[in-house]
Design a protein around this nucleic acid. Structure first.
Lengths: 210, 210
DNA sequence: GTCTATAATGGGATAGAC
DNA sequence: GTCTATCCCATTATAGAC
């Protein structure tokens, strides 16, 4: 029982620090210090720092990916589809991550961005190998909503979209602070995600260069 | 004379490693090893690792920013403006960075993304304080091209755009490899930038949620 | 300006008592 | 399962001979 508690405390502290500072800039001493547990417990429970990173990521991926996949499959069964509907498939699964942690949605997207950029792409490998089918369904849905796009266009625009989302979320705290100061605008993560959707849908649906 | 050579060799080696691996994951030993110079020379010439990072960034910013500003000011003097024109202001200044290094355009954007995400925002501070006027003119141009957008919308969409660009460039090598394998598509950095512009222009110009 | 050698620090991981 | 103590390694930075 104390075992489970310690594991949870480590995961909770680690995800916050990883999201804020990145993986390399976060030490096990910081994590265990914040979590109030012993330094050696990370290696006891997770084996290594790298395995801890994977565990932190998978806690989110394991709930986010299946939920998104269900929504995408449901949408693909419809006779016609819009890009807004495609992107909306991810909103509820994302918001549902608040059950894992109050700031779960923001943390997850930050971690996703870190993992994609930081390391030698080991996270990209992990996602493609474990959740590749979700990406396929996402691509299918985009093609159905925007039949004029070539496969190559869809590929590129998916990555443009990923960039928009993860980069914005990685700096979301600072950006929301600025928005509050400069525009007197209080916006939460869900509001920010909804603000992105028209941008993403319009970008993905743009007429490509010939 | 040997002084200048060493400084250059360090900068050339450092920017490649920083762009590929990030700042924290690149050691001075790697840099001096690749550059073929002595370990201690970094501190002699630059003072510290942090100052080296700033020097690497500023070599690019010092040519990119004024050139972009000139193009933006020229555009702002026109009677009417489109979003495509606004984004095109950055293409020539970006491509011109090939004079600094063959892969200069890609390296610069990768560094920009790293600096924006990696550290405690010191790069954001640096850019805003040294090149804030360019950002202002960029904002002005967007507002002129898309008068329906509120200041807040412009603010957010600028950051969405920045995210798209730097994230794509940070993973551009891997993505271009995939495009070659899966779609038999040979694309260089300039081609990729031009592929992004319709996406960005359409995203920025999208009708915002009310 | 350049080099060797080394200081000073902080990192991940582990052995072994409890 | 947990803790202390420690090992071993890599890092940045610097002192001092050349």
């Amino acid at each position: 029982m104390a075992k489970k508690e310690t594991k949870q405390k480590i995961l909770d502290a680690a995800e916050l620090l990883f999201a804020e500072q990145g993986f390399s800039d976060t030490s096990l001493r910081q994590i265990t210090g914040d979590a109030g547990v012993n330094l050696a417990s990370v290696n006891y429970h997770f084996g290594s720092k790298k395995d801890l990173i994977k565990a932190v990521m998978d806690r989110y991926l394991a709930t986010f990916m299946p939920a998104s996949d269900t929504a995408l499959l449901h949408l693909l069964a419809q006779p016609s589809v819009t890009l807004h509907q495609v992107f909306n498939c991810f909103v509820a699964p994302l918001m549902q991550l608040a059950n894992i942690h109050g700031q779960g949605p923001a943390i997850f997207l930050q971690l996703l961005g870190r993992g994609y950029i930081d390391n030698q792409g080991f996270l990209r490998w992990f996602i493609v190998n474990h959740y590749g089918q979700v990406l396929n369904n996402f691509t299918q849905a985009i093609k159905k909503a925007a039949p004029g796009l070539s496969s190559s266009d869809v590929f590129w625009r998916l990555h443009f979209t990923l960039g928009t989302v993860v980069f914005t979320m990685a700096s979301s705290e600072a950006l929301r602070d600025i928005a509050k100061t400069d525009f007197n605008e209080n916006i939460d993560v869900e509001g920010l995600v909804r603000k992105m959707i028209p941008y993403l849908a319009s970008g993905v649906g743009a007429k490509p260069i010939e």
